[in-house]
Amino acid sequence: MEDMLEDTVLVNLRVNGKLHELEIPAHKSLLDLLREDLNMTGTHMGCMTGHCGACTVSIDGRVAKSCITLAATLSRAKITTIEGLTEEDGTLSPIQQAFWDEAGFQCGYCAPGMLMCTAELLESNSDPSDSEIETALAGNLCRCTGYQSLKRAVKAAAVKAKEKAS
């Protein structure tokens, strides 16, 4: 019998505010940790090479592609996933609401990346221009929409977020 003897690593990380302590194989991606160990399937696999962005999460306040991030490197990290955008009482965040209202998505498979990158963009820029939106979403592929509805949704999200803040 041949055994894939693998080192395991103990990590503790905070996902959407909740602390988890896990012993995981050293090779495990953050994507697989979220989906397999925490059963949080909102973050999606599209390519496993970092090109499509469907696996995007926020790590310590910066967006990152979880398929090419080793979970073992993330001890004490604060992770936010798409599930973490919804408020505790189940209310959609202004960004989620805007993307729904504006038909931002079709199939919605790329939603994790688009929403996490929009959240990061609006964090520092309440009124983004077209080119700023293009820069923020440059790492995320969408195959359904031709991106027109996504741009419209980001702009609507900016308005909604401002309304909520004021």
Binding site: M40, T41, G42, T43, T81, I82, E83, L85, T86, L92, Q96, Q97, F99, W100, A103, G104, F105, C107, G108, Y109, A111, P112, L115
Partner: peptide
Amino acid sequence: GRGPVMGKA
């Protein structure tokens, strides 16, 4: 369209 924006589809 609600499920996908929540990561719940």
